[in-house]
Amino acid sequence: MIPAPFEYLRAHDVAHALDLLREHGDEAKLLAGGHSLLPMMKLRLARPTVLIDIAELADLDYVRVDGDTLAVGALATHARVGEAELVRAEAPLIAHSASLIGDPQVRHRGTIGGSLAHADPAADLPMAVLAAGATLVLEGPAGRREVDADDFFTGFFTTALEPDEILVEIRLPRRAGEPWGYEKFVRRSNDWAIVGVATVAGRVALANMGSAPLRAAETERALAAGAGIDAAAELAAENTDPVSDLHADPAYRRHLARVLVARALSSAPG
């Protein structure tokens, strides 16, 4: 399987990538790690005629502390996010999430920005940044703007990104030492979550329980009101809309959500 023909352009920095995006408009797609886009292009599920390779934008590959925030450049690979001491110390939930993605080869190529922009409802990092209360920094022709993770994932594989914008930075609240929990239910190794749960600081996010990653709002409210873990977890599947596929039907996914939320809340390694 090979993708349909396209033109390949390599961007040197963010400004250059934005120029190329403007020049090529709807025809073009950004290429980061290529580990969602290339498989989709092989299957003809995506058919851009221009690829703008942003993988070499050295100005977007970093992890650094910025006041009470941990700033991660969009091109940091899953391997880097999973292994960097700074991420493991200041945002352990995010490091753990990245370290569970696919397999080592996938983590060497895939990037945090690519995963969030792709917005697969079953993916690890979208759920994790939602639980972490991250802020995403988008850059377009008019400059930079910030979008809360809560407002970024707008639906099935869709986000608040405009076609002429690039996701440049992920800003994570520093949470060194705070307890967190993560549950990824899979049947095969290197697979996406059948249902996933990430929780930290009273926030609980779910993967694959709807068309986008979701907050388990009723569970969060119950926890805030002082409910115990089991009572709060019972509410985890409220207002969810899980799909049916060969792995699980909606009723089983709701059951998994309740069980996994209870596990994530009680495991909370820290």
């Binding site: 290529g34 580990h35 993988a55 080869q105 060497h108």
Partner: peptide, 25 residues
């Protein structure tokens, strides 16, 4: 389809699945 790893090579010293990397990259 990026699943089996038979195509694994090292790219700048780290393992990658070469069926999911462009020669251009």
């Amino acid at each position: 389809t990026t699943s089996c790893g038979a195509c694994t090579v090292l790219l700048d010293g780290v393992s990658v699945k070469s069926c999911t990397v462009l020669a251009a990259q």
